[in-house]
Amino acid sequence: MIDKIFFNLTRFSALLILVIVAWIFVVLFNHSLEAMRTFGLDFITQDEWAPNLDKFGAYAAILGSVISTTLAMLLAVPIAIGVAIFLSEIAHDKVKSFFGISVELLAAIPSVIYGMWGLFYFVPILRDIFGGMGIGLLAAGIVLAIMILPFMAAVTRDAMNTTPDILKESAYALGGTQWDVIKDVIIPYAKAGIIGSLILALGRAIGETMAVTFVMGNVHHVPGSILDPTTSIPVTLANEFTEADSSLYFSSLFGLALTLLVMSFVVIAIAKFYFLRKARRA
């Protein structure tokens, strides 16, 4: 009797996850129907976002999301790989544990604080160097890069550490240098895991809101350069959700949310089910 109840309770809780995920998709889809019907494909190809005219084209926001995360990846990936190599192949034990703690520290800082730091300390520097407002895609890309760096470096290091010692030693035994071993043995061996880790970090970066909201500008137009203020999907949602005053406006925002969810779902699923699963099997 109690056994049965307990079993059903656990099963209900487990199924609830599936229900919630499905529900999220359904709700976002239903609420964005109006925008989809009204604008069709224009919703993602037009960049005019004019609430007063009830015209909503998400192109600028989508582009902003894509470019800011791409920039963040371009900046973070080489450094993260460098850090991962440092941690797995160069650093002594003490340095390793010091670094490990530092990474935990960084991971513990809420992303809103990265944004705040970016706005008050990093944007002024960009302004001094490049002129203009300082806020925009470059600032967003850099803050985002800093924010995903620890996570990215940690998972990349973990992937590299799966290379068996004996395999590395075999390359050293043939007269290889550390770099030879890294590029010829470790990276090829852990390739799937490394790529998976990097893409997983990308998946997180796409949905990151608070770190970029401060430094993006929230201006709905396609920027002339990465130094101009613009917007991205999460930034638009964060700034406008509570201000929406027409049902089409709301629907358009839900359309943005759905777009973001699909983007991140696809990216994360590719990372987890293609690369990381392949890495685990190897």
Binding site: P164, S170, A171, A173, L174, T177, D184, V185, Y189
Partner: peptide, 27 residues
Amino acid sequence: IHLRTKIGMIFQKPTAFPMSIFDNVAY
């Protein structure tokens, strides 16, 4: 580096590198 090219080593388990047969031997 020089020493290890003069004194080679074979391990307890086979340690084929993740590359082709040819590239393994040519490494």
